[in-house]
């Protein structure tokens, strides 16, 4: 049975911009979530519809290379627990929904990397209800060809002194199109909370389309929230300098794009996965150690 999958900006805005939400039709109903057991690093190879619940103390690395698939993930971090989730998307037509509940002093570390997928929709909602709960999110993307990348991240901070830190690094090439909606929502009662979000996008070809929607919602006086976003081209001075060192321009462009994503890849914290990601980026020397094992 077909199911609708939709994402939406928490506060709608001007319709002509086409950023208020996205809808897709899934060919089947999502499967029932499976609870992951055990601790240590768990690697999941995802090639079809799947649903998981990740609990405190777990580190999960998902390699998502499905076609036409729906992935549902829920993170449940109870008091003082820590969860680490790494998601590498490089499939086609993937819809992903990630939710998280963070209790007092709970922490979630999230790394999401999107590479080359033709039509990826990712909807993430992190509910930071717990006092001093913490979120670190490192997101990287490289979209090329005719890729469509639609990312929606909604961080709801209702816990006192909760802290979120979101860093997004991206590269758009050829005719790729991307929307990133990033919301920090300070709810009433989140006294002492802070949230920071930054997106930095490198645009390398004239036909790319980049839409960025960095939203801050605030119903609490005692908070500190910041947003930053930059989008731009390769720095001509950097290209000139590297050319003067004998590197041809196409190679320079590749190098700069890889450097941009390198910071996110290093956050994976698992050498095997990092090497796999570098290989996806076309690095022939990817078998060299990147992170100390």
């Amino acid at each position: 049975m077909e199911t609708k999958f939709s994402t939406r900006l928490p506060v709608p805005t001007f319709r002509f911009l086409g950023v208020n939400g996205t809808e897709r039709v899934l060919p089947a109903e999502p499967p029932a979530p499976a609870a992951l057991s055990g601790t240590g690093i768990q690697r999941l190879d995802i090639t079809a519809d799947a649903a998981f619940t990740v609990t405190g103390g777990q580190t999960v690395i998902m390699d998502i290379h499905a076609e036409q698939a729906y992935l549902q993930t829920h993170l449940q971090a109870d008091a003082n627990e820590k969860i680490r989730l790494v998601q590498i998307f490089h499939g086609d037509c993937v819809c992903s929904r990630l939710t998280a509940d963070l209790a007092d002093h709970a922490a979630a570390e999230l790394v999401q990397i999107y590479l080359h997928g033709t039509d990826t929709v990712s909807d993430t909602e992190i509910r930071m209800n717990g006092r001093k709960s913490a979120l670190t999110a490192n997101i990287g993307y490289l979209a090329d060809g005719d890729s469509r990348l639609d990312l929606n991240l909604n961080v709801i901070q209702s816990g006192k002194k909760s802290v979120s830190d979101i860093d997004v690094q991206g590269v758009l090439r050829e005719r790729a199109q991307k929307i990133f909606r990033g919301t920090i929502d300070f709810r009433q009662g989140a006294a002492g909370a802070s949230g920071a979000e930054h997106e930095d996008v490198l645009l390398t070809d004239p036909e790319v389309v980049n839409k960025t929607v960095p939203v801050i919602l605030c119903a609490e006086e005692d908070v500190a929230g910041t947003h930053g976003a930059t989008a731009g081209q390769l720095d001509a001075r950097v290209i000139f300098y590297l050319q003067s060192r004998g590197i041809p321009e196409p190679e320079i462009r590749e190098l700069i794009a890889q450097t941009k994503l390198g910071g996110v890849i290093r956050q994976i914290g698992d050498a095997e996965t990092e090497r796999a990601v570098w290989r996806l980026l076309g690095r022939e020397d990817a078998d060299e150690p990147v992170t100390e094992e």
């Binding site: 506060v11 805005t13 001007f14 911009l17 950023v19 645009l203 790319v208 389309v209 980049n210 839409k211 960025t212 929607v213 960095p214 939203v215 801050i216 919602l217 605030c218 947003h227 976003a229 989008a231």
Partner: peptide, 9 residues
């Protein structure tokens, strides 16, 4: 609330 949008082509 702050709801900015950038659309760059």
């Amino acid at each position: 609330d702050t709801v900015p949008v950038m659309d760059i082509r």
